[in-house]
Write a protein that binds this DNA or RNA. Structure first.
Length: 573
DNA sequence: GCCGTTTTCGGCCCGACTGTTTTCAGTCG
């Protein structure tokens, strides 16, 4: 049974959540979280490593105990420890900790004091005013719980794209190897590269539908088979991910791919165009009366409704059909356009690899440059550097650069934005750097006006090159902070400041629509990984997908330029 | 639970804020 790194990491994170609620030793809790981080960033399959006889306790933050536990998970798919503590802690308490301001301690106290057992119980208690009556809780907490539950923050079941990929890749390999399968593709929001997916829509082409579906449902990770026929099957994987498989005849392949890729509103627009031409478009093809006139390829289908092929990332009914009609579809940025990464951490702050190791991997990727952006001093929890330590790092980078050919490390810093928009480091230090990334890490709950003013104030400083993860959101974890994006973009345009598209699949911050708005406003974007390890540099592709969903071309992205050009662009003084 | 070592156990990140209470525990980044 294949066990993925992300599953193991999720198990460890879950153990940490439960231990925290049980008030376990906080360092033990952190050990599980650290191990989960290491596993997620690994880039190699733990299962493969075990097969090769590797000693997992050689990995950072993995000792003998956790190495054993990993082996156990790989062997059995389960961790007995997790089963044990899950029995003691209701899942609803874990969910309650996703409410801002409610941590493990208060969640437990809440459930105990009111004898609750579900999220619905919690909602009722908040509505009836019971929570404010508990010692240590008050009106504000109660109002907040009520509001967060109303917004459904803790019920969102969509999977992040990177997590879905982790399950999709081996499943697709399995499907492509089924006898008689000549083609297989994932459609739906996965193909559109949306930041989260609800389920996987898989299309296959092949001869014997029943046989293919029989084989599909025998996949190791299938836990539940909801339906199973000659052309279609729906299953749920062990991870909870729902998968729909459809067997498509060759003449309908393109039409089905078009139909199941969506989005729904893009499809509706396509069908309307067909109607206007007295044709009918469905998942089987484009029909003139009873005669199929197109359907084998997507291009054929688009041709039939007088449009050029439209890239899946654009199919959101955001003007792509009009643009296609007028020959104005964007020339989307490609991975090959990227010449470097402008946001990365090292062991100096909270990264896992050294300057040298990060530089080596960046060079292996063919980059011309990599900006080292360790945290500034107020990020104490992330090992933020003192001013002295920063000066030393700049010197160290200069020395290292003497050894490189056709590549350079850029001396930079992810400097904290203080509450009033000023920076955590003096200009005198920042002047020494090749560029400056400024980010908000504190005071996330300011009013929209204050937060907007804060960022604009930051951009007033001409030493600031790039605003890092501009809205602070973390998908499924934390909402974006309140911000008037149009004002921020206008100010960035005025000041020649660049906004980051953080490529970490947890952040993808800016959102696609904001990327597009930026381009329309004339604000340039930096696609940066915010890598905390060499493996983290691979996240660039998620940023590129997101940029493409925002209609961005290479010319909108600053790190498609060589350092010579880029350094001139970033200089605002 | 990991790590580093003074190889057997102590230290592990910590300052600021919030809502509550009136001196601080819990949460957050």
């Amino acid at each position: 049974m294949p066990v993925h790194n992300s599953e193991i990491a999720t198990i460890f994170d879950h153990v940490a959540d439960l231990l925290e609620i049980e008030d376990a030793n906080r360092f033990r809790v952190r050990a599980y979280r650290n191990a989960a981080d290491t596993i997620r960033d690994l880039g190699r399959s733990l299962e493969d490593m075990l097969e090769e006889g590797a000693d997992l306790s050689d990995l950072p933050d993995i000792g003998e105990d956790l190495a054993d536990k990993i082996a156990k998970i790989v062997r059995t798919g389960q961790l007995p420890l997790l089963e044990e503590i899950s029995d003691d802690v209701p899942e609803a308490i874990v969910k309650a900790t996703r409410i801002p301001g409610i941590g493990p301690k208060r969640a437990r106290a809440l459930f105990k004091a009111l004898d609750l057992s579900s999220v619905d119980d919690l909602r009722d208690a908040a509505e009836e005013g019971d929570i404010a009556e508990i010692e240590g809780f008050g009106e504000k907490t109660q109002t907040r719980i009520r509001k967060e539950l109303k917004e459904g923050v803790i019920e969102d079941e969509r999977l992040r794209l990177d997590v879905a990929e982790d399950f999709a890749a081996p499943l697709m390999e399995w499907i492509r190897n089924i006898e008689g399968v000549s083609k297989a593709e994932i459609a739906g929001s996965y193909r559109r590269r949306k930041e989260t997916v609800g389920d996987l829509d898989i299309l296959v082409q092949g001869e014997d539908g029943s046989a293919i579906i029989d084989c599909f449902t025998e996949y190791d990770e299938v836990e539940d088979i909801a339906s199973k026929g000659k052309t279609r099957s729906t299953v749920t994987l062990r991870s909870g991910l729902q998968v729909d498989l459809r067997v498509i005849p060759e003449p309908s392949w393109g039409a089905a791919l078009y139909y199941f890729t969506g989005s729904k509103s893009h499809n509706i627009a396509g069908r309307r165009r067909a109607q206007d031409r007295e044709l009918k478009l469905n998942e089987y093809g484009l029909f003139d009366g009873e005669t199929r006139i197109a359907g084998a390829t997507e291009k054929e289908v688009y041709d039939g409704i007088d449009l050029p092929w439209i890239h899946p990332v654009l199919r959101e009914s955001r003007g792509e059909i009009e643009a296609a009609e007028n020959g104005e579809l964007p020339e989307l940025v490609e991975s090959e356009d990227i010449k470097g990464d402008l946001h990365a951490h090292t062991t100096a702050s909270d990264g896992k690899n050294s300057l040298k190791e990060m530089a080596q991997v960046a060079q292996d990727k063919g980059y011309e440059y990599l900006a080292i952006t360790d945290h500034s001093k107020s990020q104490t929890q992330a090992g933020g550097l003192s001013e002295d330590a920063f000066h030393r790092q700049v010197d160290e980078i200069a020395e290292l650069n003497d050894e490189f050919h056709g590549f350079r490390l850029l001396a930079s810093c992810e400097v904290d934005i203080l509450e009033d928009g000023r920076l955590d480091f003096p200009d005198k230090l920042l002047e020494r750097l090749d560029l400056v990334v400024a980010s908000v890490h504190s005071k996330l709950d300011l009013s929209e006006d204050k937060q907007t003013e804060r960022l604009i104030r930051t951009m007033d400083n001409p030493l600031v090159s790039i605003i890092g993860h501009p809205t602070g959101r973390q998908i499924g974890e934390r909402k974006a902070f309140a911000l008037d994006m149009e004002q921020v973009l206008a100010a960035a345009k005025d000041r020649g400041c660049v906004l980051e598209l953080n490529a970490n699949p947890i952040r993808l911050d800016l959102k696609d629509v904001h990327c597009r708005l930026a381009a329309e406003t004339g604000v340039d974007i930096a696609i940066s990984t915010d890598a905390h390890s060499t493996g983290g540099l691979d996240n660039m592709r998620y940023g590129i997908d997101q940029a493409r969903r925002g209609w961005l071309a290479a010319e909108n992205i600053v790190n498609t330029r060589s350092w010579g050009n880029l350094s001139k662009m970033l200089r605002r003084t």
